[in-house]
Design a protein around this nucleic acid. Sequence first.
DNA 1: ATAAACCTTGGAGCCCACTCCAAGGTCAAG
DNA 2: CTTGACCTTGGAGTGGGCTCCAAGGTTTAT
Lengths: 170, 170
Amino acid sequence: MYRIGELADLCEVKADTLRFYEKHGLLTPSSRTDSGYRVYTETDAARLRFILRAKAVGFTLNEISELLSIDLDKSNWVCADVKGMVDVKLAQVQAKIAELNHFQASLQSLSDACCGGPRSAEHCSILEALESSTDSVRTEHDHELHLHPFQEPTDHFNDLGKAAHEKSGN
Amino acid sequence: MYRIGELADLCEVKADTLRFYEKHGLLTPSSRTDSGYRVYTETDAARLRFILRAKAVGFTLNEISELLSIDLDKSNWVCADVKGMVDVKLAQVQAKIAELNHFQASLQSLSDACCGGPRSAEHCSILEALESSTDSVRTEHDHELHLHPFQEPTDHFNDLGKAAHEKSGN
DNA sequence: ATAAACCTTGGAGCCCACTCCAAGGTCAAG
DNA sequence: CTTGACCTTGGAGTGGGCTCCAAGGTTTAT
Ligand SMILES: [Zn+2]
Ligand SMILES: [Zn+2]
Ligand SMILES: [Zn+2]
Ligand SMILES: [Zn+2]
């Protein structure tokens, strides 16, 4: 038997969260004290742990509601039903990962092209890339050129060397 | 000069979205007709494209507001500022990817352990894993045993063959 | 002249999972 | 008997990005 704060501490959740789960039908305490305090049994605690484990693998609370009702009525469901839910979620997660991998690659190429230094953002290749319609990103390879405008012919060599370091835009 | 629907079609966005961006200070049309219709210039269109490109690399609209104000006032910002925003976003995206990779691995091991067949969910290893406190997942390797309770000794061979296909739980 | 296709506004609703608040009741220790 | 830690409720707020609605005004084609 736990009061709300005890169960919350036990499962490293806030009491507010337990009230929220109750409001949404996921976890109703088995009883109340005379004064109205929620009283959770060990069974309630097990149900909370189920919820938290399902959350830890990426299910939403709505999906967890479904899983809970299946769990309480197993004989009317088959493995295909349960595995179906997992596989749908898996596909969603994989789709999201793919999207974020796109973001990650784009951000990395923007970051790589920018010197990150104290020079004016007027020359910043990140802003330039966001302004322009092309997908390629210019690398900021012209620092010394700006700082030393009167270069010797050997700077052509520098330019070529730097150019070789540049990432090609996609 | 575009009316709202024209710009929306041009950039494959809904007119509602453009009004939403305006309400949130991201994109205000340069003028209005006498009858109150929004009129967008080519500059406005460029700004919208900036917004859409920033969205495509994962920035939120609030972050895009910041980027836009930097872009309009470049001389008062430096590369470090811009690259900083990109790198913060990059770290956020990478953290989210890491979380989703966890989800993905957990879901995959749940899925792998379940037969996905038409048998009662009473034997489902997915539900069992969500109920139990251990992190390992039992593989459902006992189908034929249940369906054909009177087996010949050769079924031991079947069991071993199946066991070799099983993924080990984590 | 009239219909169709456009445009205007303010505001509500949605998904998701909390999180916080105010105003009060309860309970154990000192 | 007071203090402080706990508990109760309903409801509002957060961030994010739209999306839809109603009730009207405008433009264009026929
Ligand atoms: Zn720079
Ligand atoms: Zn830069
Ligand atoms: Zn099965
Ligand atoms: Zn199963």
